[in-house]
Structures are given as structure tokens and as C-alpha cells.
């Protein structure tokens, strides 16, 4: 579904990520792991189109999207839960969800809303509240629901568990499994390597802007370097 070849890019002349090749198959869940400053968020920004300078190939369902402006990628089926959530703070939760479906511009969103509420019943209760007044975990739920309202084929989540209580992390990761069960592909960026590897099929480990390691989650869990560096075993 997503094919990346020799992708380099950054915020200025100096690349932050270099020569990255990565694949996500239809309906697969893939983790992108690595320490802070490894280039995980930069890679995500290249996929969603908000990285200032990029070269290489990103093909989504066979179409090269590297030069496609960010606001036109969501209609192809790429939706993003950005790092730090970025909900529209002064808008109601319901308006936040509707903004997720902006590229479709239809008022007929009943079944999409119902799917979101089935995933996170708490979001239904908070519909009329301004999103900025919610707790961090609830805002994360809104951010995930907003992305689902776009009707994606690929859901990209950048550190969805960052700063959340352990119970909330489990709820978010549970939701990711349910989303994937609907046939939506997932790219999950996490610093929390051990719990991320329980959610995904495969993973890539990023180090100083390049892919250092990749494999199935079982392979990565058993890999000595991963165990020492990220799992602390």
C-alpha cells in the first residue's frame, strides 16, 4: 500500500533522514521505533506532506505522492494523528470530528460517528465540550477519532501514548488493534517499544535518520540490540 524508496529529507539543506526504504502492505500494522531525534517524526512528516524538503519516492497505492501538497493527501486515504495531538482546542469535540471528514464535505456522517463512539464511548459523552478542556487521554481519543472520520486506508499515529497514564496507553493500543481489524493499515510511531511491539506485525528501527534494523515484531523482540537498547533487558 505504501512504498518508500531512498527517501531523504529535512527542514533545510541538511537531511535529517537519509535513504530510507520502507513498505507497508494492505491492512498491515507497522511500528517505527527509535530514540528521540532518530528522525521518526521527520519521516511521518514526509509521508503526510508537511516536511519542507524531500527527495526520493513515496508511492501510495501505486501513485507517487512526494510532490503532492499535504492538504491533498488525506483524500487519497492517509490520515494522521500528529505528535502532541493538535486538536482544535476551542472547537467542540463534534466539530473536531467533523473537521476529520472535511475532505468529503458531507453532513451525512452518522455511521462514521457511530464507529468512533463504538471505539471510544467517552468521546460521545464529550461531544459538546470544547476539545481543549479535555484531559490529555481524552484529547488523544478525539485526535484518533478525527483521523478515522477521514475514512483512511492508512492511519499514521505519531507517539499516541506519549504522556498518557498506563491504563490510557492500554486503551489507545487496544483501539489501534480494533481499527486494524477493520482493514485499515497502521503506521505506529512509539518510544514505548515493548508495548508497541505487542500491537504491530512488523517494525523498523530508526537510528540517526537511517533504518538500522527491521523485522517482524517477534524477531525484534528477540533481537539482542533491541533488547539491550530499547527494552532494557
Amino acid at each position: 500500500m505504501l512504498r518508500m524508496r531512498d527517501l531523504s529529507g529535512g527542514y533545510g539543506p541538511r537531511p535529517v533522514i537519509s535513504r530510507i526504504s520502507l513498505d507497508i502492505a494492505e491492512g498491515e500494522t507497522v511500528a517505527l521505533l527509535g530514540a528521540n531525534t532518530a528522525g521518526k517524526t521527520t519521516l511521518i512528516r514526509a509521508i503526510v506532506g508537511t516536511l519542507p524538503s524531500v527527495s526520493g519516492v513515496i508511492a501510495f497505492e501505486g501513485r507517487d505522492i512526494v510532490q503532492l501538497p499535504a492538504h491533498r493527501r488525506v483524500a487519497l486515504g492517509i490520515a494522521c494523528v500528529p505528535e502532541g495531538r493538535h486538536v482544535f482546542g476551542q472547537m467542540s469535540v463534534r466539530d473536531n470530528l467533523m473537521m476529520g471528514a472535511y475532505h468529503r464535505r458531507t453532513e451525512d456522517l452518522g455511521s462514521d460517528l457511530a464507529d468512533c463512539f463504538a471505539l471510544f464511548p467517552r468521546v460521545r459523552e464529550r461531544q459538546a465540550q470544547a476539545a481543549g478542556t479535555l484531559s490529555g487521554g481524552e484529547q488523544q481519543m478525539v485526535a484518533i477519532c478525527r483521523a478515522l472520520m477521514a475514512g483512511p486506508r492508512l492511519l499514521v499515529l505519531d507517539e499516541p501514548s506519549h504522556g498518557l497514564a498506563p491504563l490510557m496507553v492500554a486503551e489507545v493500543h487496544g483501539a489501534i488493534r480494533k481499527v486494524n481489524a477493520r482493514g485499515i493499515g497502521v503506521l505506529l510511531v512509539e518510544q514505548n517499544v515493548s508495548s508497541a511491539l505487542k500491537v504491530v506485525d512488523r517494525g523498523y528501527v530508526l537510528e540517526s535518520g537511517a533504518i538500522a534494523l527491521s523485522g517482524t515484531s517477534r524477531d525484534l523482540q528477540d533481537n539482542d540490540t533491541v533488547r539491550r537498547t530499547y527494552l532494557g533487558i
Binding site: V48, T50, P69, A70, H71, R72, V74, A75, A79, C80, P82, H86, V87, F88, G89, Q90, M91, D95, M98, M99, G100, Y102, H103, R146, A150
Partner: peptide
Amino acid sequence: RAIRATAQNPMAATLFGVD
């Protein structure tokens, strides 16, 4: 909605298809 979303968070508005 797009105007308000852009005022509050232009980056997130872009992610959801707002030019």
C-alpha cells in the same frame, strides 16, 4: 469550520485537507 480550524491550528487543518 475550516476558517476556525485554520485559526486554531493551521498544521492540523492542512492534515485534514484544508488548503
